[in-house]
Amino acid sequence: MLEIRNITKTFFPGTVNEVRALRGVTLTIEDGCFAAIIGTNGSGKSTLLNAVAGTFLPDEGSVFIDGTDITHWPEHKRARLVGRVFQNPFAGTAAEMTIAENIAIAMKRGKSRGVGQALSRSVRDEIADKVRALNMGLENRLDNPIGTLSGGQRQALTLLMATWVRPKLLLLDEHTAALDPKSAAQVAALTSEIIARDKLTVLMVTHSMQQAVQMPGRVVMMHAGNVVEDYAGERKKGLRIADLMRAFDRVRRRDLFDAAVANIVVPQYA
């Protein structure tokens, strides 16, 4: 279970460039819950994922995984618990290394790092089996550098690697956004499949309303560094794209409703 308690993060504090990226976010994600995070650009979605992954320390607040306070754990230590896939297909894998080598590294997550051993026959077979299951024909290219693959293929492999050893928490940051529509749909389907099979606990940032409505069991909307909507349970089941569009609309309207507007409209509302 992931618990985010009252996290704040301000970039460039005290300067003209000050950005209050997270303004006290509290969010609990139960075990086995697949939650999507949506929100306007700059609302703090990636910053929240970064705070959980340990890319930086939050200014205030704390992060717990399974009751353990990991707020001050360095990023590499958290990587044992947290699998991560970014928007950029070129992040997260080493381009000049082969598919098999990249996967071999992923297989060692959470274990002490043995370096550069030749892959045993049985390990190669295990890799080939899982890669074959992607149905992308990549099992015959295990010794090709991963940099020679298309974005969709790379993202599918990155996802496979991030979940090879079951992570306590999987973080996906717009991981299909840079792909063409067909590859995006493929990777999204693979995502749902792996999450359902391994009953993973997931935070997925997406700008696709369709993904937000179809894939997860819960949808959290962020705006200006806050959580402004949380669709879970029955409320999520009935959720349609139009509801999300309206929620975005509400949020935008709220922004436009400033003190000057209040002065004018409140007396006219009788």
């Binding site: 509400r250 309207r253 709220r254 409703f257 003190a259 507007v261 209040a262 002065n263 409209v265 509302y269």
Partner: peptide
């Protein structure tokens, strides 16, 4: 309820 900013919890303005 009529005070800003709490009025925004009660009333929505089209904004455009």
């Amino acid at each position: 309820a009529a005070e800003f900013p709490s009025v925004r919890d009660w009333l929505s303005f089209t904004g455009e």
